[in-house]
Simulated scan of single mutants.
Amino acid sequence: MSRAPIIVAARRTPIGRVGRSLRSLSVEQLAAPVLRALLEDVGLGPDGVADVVLGNAVGPGGNPARLAVLTAGFPVSVPGLTVDRQCGSGLAAINLAARLIQSGAGDCYMAGGMESVSTAPWRIEKPASLYDLPRFTHRARFAPEAIGDPDMGAAADEVAQTYGISRDRQDAYALQSHQKAITAEQAGRFALERVPVSLSSQTRVIDDDCPRANLSLERLAKLPPVFSPEGTVTVGNACPINDGAAAVLMMAEEQCRALGIRQGLRFVDAAIAGVDPNLAGIGPVASTRLLLHRHPALTWSEVHHVEFNEAFAAQVLACLDVLEIPPELVNPGGGAIALGHPYGASGAILMTRLFTDLVRHRSPGAWRGLALIGVGGGLGISTLVERWDG
């Protein structure tokens, strides 16, 4: 009996810009409609789900995955587990669920991620004494100061300088991301993966907030550097800040066959690796090299679709250069620069995009995909999947 993990459904919310279309919704309110849609897609009841594993990076703490399970109306018997690997949380949750299936711990899991930066609580450091004022901080620490703990934007500038990624290349890549996203939207390639989100009985959010049809290289070139006067990272060639959720439904192959499910994505393998936190964006190089080391016969000619989280154009371009990934394989529907980067959800959005193009639309000649994401603190995650026709 096969324990191969098969992704049989993948969904996401529209991706909202912070403070805009999804600003009133908490993480569990974003995740709940996605969880319900996954069950509807395969005609499965929630009683068959062994666990729901969801990533979250800047949320309220506690166990928001369990909160999302109950908000979705699932029976109290269905548990929930929250994973925090920062930007990689959603993909890490999917990888964990796959390993649980492989181990025999359970047959059916939901996994993904959720983020509401709009409703995230403020982070305040506790003062050393009652006579000191508390200090607001914008993020948790990723690494000890002795090693270096730069903000991700400053680290992206360092990557651009170290790997010789020019401002012109970054801007051109950003423009292409928006153009591809607009083309994919017009072709209807996002419609089946998105779950409309209700704000009230009269109002629903259906579309993504951020792709821009009117962007140009001239407009991008006018934007100043954000993180240092000498830098090349701007708001135009970096991702926006976003709200959203995404998840997959994953089963052991034997259960798929028993339920009559005959198509999906087979989880092949995944790897995670660490790099210098000062060059955090280069993390996917290390994780992909580790993954390829375990699959030495695999070449780029045998990978048909790469979803790479576009936190910064500089980071993506540096990784593509070092790994020698053909650019035409990468993000055919655009990436996070255009669509957005809701931290804890982004890794699951990558897998949702792979599912749409390799399974829903069955792009001609495309059946093997790779999801890549870099993570604050100097981490990379790489996950390899193949189309499965049971």
Rank of each mutant, 00 (worst) to 15 (best):
P60N: 12
A68D: 01
A120E: 07
A128I: 07
G55D: 02
D132S: 11
P134R: 07
A65E: 00
A120T: 07
R66E: 03
A140C: 12
V49H: 05
G62E: 10
P121W: 06
I101F: 02
G43P: 04
G73R: 11
A57Y: 02
D41M: 02
Y109I: 01
A105C: 12
T71N: 09
Q102G: 15
H138W: 13
D41E: 07
Y109T: 00
G113T: 06
P46C: 01
S118F: 11
Y131N: 09
S129H: 12
A57C: 09
M114Y: 14
A93R: 01
R99N: 15
S118K: 09
D51F: 00
A140P: 00
D132G: 04
D132Q: 14
A72W: 09
P64G: 09
V53K: 00
M114I: 13
L81G: 06
G45H: 13
V117Y: 14
F74R: 08
K126V: 14
N95L: 15
G61W: 04
S77L: 12
L96E: 01
D84A: 06
I124Y: 10
T71C: 10
L130T: 10
D107L: 10
A105H: 05
D51G: 00
V42R: 13
F136D: 06
Y131G: 12
T119P: 04
S116I: 01
S118M: 13
G113P: 03
P121T: 06
I101M: 02
V42K: 09
T82C: 08
R85K: 15
V83R: 04
D107R: 11
D41Q: 06
S89H: 05
A65W: 02
A68Q: 03
I124N: 05
Y131H: 13
R135S: 12
D47H: 15
V58S: 13
P46M: 01
